[in-house]
Design a protein around this nucleic acid. Structure first.
Length: 576
DNA sequence: GGAAACGGCGCG
DNA sequence: AAAGCGCGCCGTTTCC
């Protein structure tokens, strides 16, 4: 069944496409791609480009324009810096990667190697003195190359297993690239003062040597209680040796193993590790490096994870400790509107597997409570551990014991993940709902499989590798489809927010010219979004988040009767 | 002396 | 020492 066979037309389809590249002389060149386009091939200087884009968007009206460019990361920031946003894009680099893997028949894509290179690092900007080789990322800008790649991708999308779904995926991935660039431009509103206060409350003041007081005290305590005055507590190997000398039988120094040990050194050690983690990951050095003018500006990498999830580069934006979220504060006269999806992955699994029993369990309530209500398990915590176990491939422990109950209660959903695992174990490729494919097996796989009988050890390794891969493909279809839902959510949300009128209240100057007066997405973490909204637009922004989640569900899964519930809050930081 | 691997832990 | 997926980043250790 096509996605949303009975769903509204994609909000991302049927718009004017304009290709963007560079001439041999280095000028920016734009050219309309549609039959009879009014946009003839036209050179523009870098100075002219933003205004021309803005004018074209204006003329196109609410549907906007789809800008087909080599990479959003390379082209969009300069528009945003000029205060210009675009409606839609097609990111050739990101879409190349998807199509290359998902449509093996499109052999022309496999050969087009310049499109496989990552975007140039921000630091090594083009034009850096002595930089003789501009790198593959720059070669991609050549307009003739751009047009050739567009032709290859159009052809490949048409040959996809399901062209409609694939085009949706390409549009969603590209929309994600716009959101990523916009979030970087606007930044996460971050109070360095709050952050520093949390650090000092938790770690203590910094001593002369830079070590925080509280950490130094805890380290000293550990040394005393282990009877090892010179212990290098930050070295796992030495710490392990010291623990064993003290008669503590552990095989590693990780928290989950130390947790159960009864010894006076353990409590201060665990406390120390907790503080050390905060200091090294998000301490004063992080604050100095990453927060400026009240904003944290991470570099997001859409499609950076095999499943289609985003990654980040630098700053660890996707690993911010929960307790530091207190430092995420709205500007004066603005609000933080935050929303996260309740049980996104199980819901996505229910929808993609067309499991109406699981959808019934999920509708209008906490999905885990719904599972309890079916009688499959007795408690919410069991439902959760069983569900996670089903999606991750647990075989032992509580999860392994509970998964069979889910298999009986929700055969359709479980058949989907079990089938994906079986395909993976056999060396096959699986795909998400919209058609992103899992990586194939590496060349060593077949050779290893042949050697399976060679020895008991080889046999064991091959079996383990098969099971590992099965767990990966099992999870891939769920995590990857959840990432697609989230992209659809973001894509729809950014257009809804862009349609809200600008505030008449105070501007958020640090969010840059494109967003200083408008509600904008400030943070995204797999199944959670934070919007920075002017106070007079906060309610509308919250509604936009809800509406976008409903749209995303319809876009991917049509009328399949399942809701995606949100936990949503509008926070007034001034009131706290 | 720098790159890569490792142990550990933060997030979903 | 992980049973059970996907990441990034830190400090230490090891390798070249």
């Amino acid at each position: 069944m096509p996605p949303g066979a009975d769903a509204p037309a994609s909000p991302w389809s049927d718009v004017e496409r304009i290709a963007v590249g560079r001439s041999a002389g280095g000028d920016i060149v734009v050219i309309g791609l549609d039959h009879g386009s009014e946009v003839a091939r036209r050179p523009l200087t870098a100075a002219e480009f933003p205004a021309w884009v803005a004018q074209r968007e204006h003329e196109a009206g609410p549907r906007g324009v789809r800008w087909v460019w080599p990479s959003t990361a390379a082209w969009y920031p300069r528009l945003l810096d000029a205060g210009v946003r675009v409606t839609k894009a097609h990111d050739l680099r990101l879409c190349h990667a998807i199509l290359r893997d998902a449509v093996p028949a499109a052999t022309a894509l496999v050969a087009a190697t310049a499109w496989d290179a990552p975007d140039a690092e921000e630091g090594s900007s083009p034009g850096a003195l002595f930089d003789l080789d501009p790198g593959p990322a720059a070669h991609r800008d050549d307009l003739d190359g751009v047009l050739a790649e567009i032709a290859r991708q159009d052809d490949a999308a048409a040959r996809a297993v399901d062209p409609a779904r694939m085009r949706l995926l390409l549009a969603a991935e590209s929309a994600g690239s716009l959101v990523a660039a916009e979030m970087r431009a606007a930044g996460v509103p971050w109070s360095a003062e709050r952050h520093a206060r949390i650090l000092e409350e938790t770690l203590g003041r910094r001593r002369g040597d830079g070590t925080p007081e509280r950490m130094a005290e805890l380290a000293a305590e550990v040394r005393v209680r282990l009877g090892d005055p010179s212990l290098a507590i930050d070295s796992p190997a030495r710490l392990l040796a010291a623990l064993r000398r003290a008669g503590i039988r552990v095989t590693s120094t990780s928290r989950w193993e130390l947790r159960d040990v009864d010894h006076p050194a353990i409590a201060p050690l665990l406390a120390y590790k907790k503080l050390a983690r905060l200091l090294t990951a998000n301490g004063w050095a992080w604050l100095d490096e990453w927060v400026h003018d009240g904003r944290f500006r991470p570099l997001y990498l859409p499609g950076g994870v095999v499943t289609g999830r985003w990654a980040t580069s630098g700053g660890g934006a996707l690993q911010l400790p929960r307790r530091l979220r207190e430092a995420l504060r709205a500007d004066d006269g603005w609000r933080i509107v935050s929303a996260d999806v309740a049980q996104l992955e199980p819901r996505v699994l229910a929808a993609m597997a067309r499991d109406t029993r699981m959808a019934d369990a999920a509708r209008g309530r906490d999905l885990y409570e719904g599972i309890v209500a079916t009688g499959a398990v007795a408690h919410r915590s069991e439902a959760k551990v069983a569900m996670l176990g089903a999606m991750y491939g647990a075989t032992t422990g509580d999860a392994g014991r509970l998964v069979p109950r889910l298999r009986r209660a929700f055969p359709a959903a479980m058949a989907a993940v079990d089938g994906a695992a079986a395909t993976g174990e056999a060396g096959g490729v699986v795909s998400t709902w919209l058609g992103r494919t899992s990586p194939g097996v590496d060349p060593g796989w077949a050779a290893a499989a042949r050697s399976a009988g060679a020895s008991a050890e080889a046999e064991r390794r091959v079996r383990a590798a098969r099971r590992d891969r099965g767990r990966f493909t099992r999870n891939f279809i769920v995590q990857g489809t959840a990432a697609e839902w989230a992209l659809a959510w973001l894509a729809d949300l950014r257009l809804r927010l862009a349609a809200l009128p600008p505030t008449e209240g105070p501007a958020a100057a640090a969010s840059g010219p494109a967003f200083a007066r408008r509600a904008h997405i400030a943070y995204f973490l797999h199944d959670e979004v934070i919007v920075h909204a002017p106070a007079d637009r906060a309610d509308e922004a919250a509604q936009a988040i809800r509406d976008a989640s409903a749209s995303a569900g319809r876009l991917l899964f049509g009328s399949f009767p399942l809701d995606f519930r949100l936990d949503l809050a509008i926070r007034d930081d001034a009131a706290k």
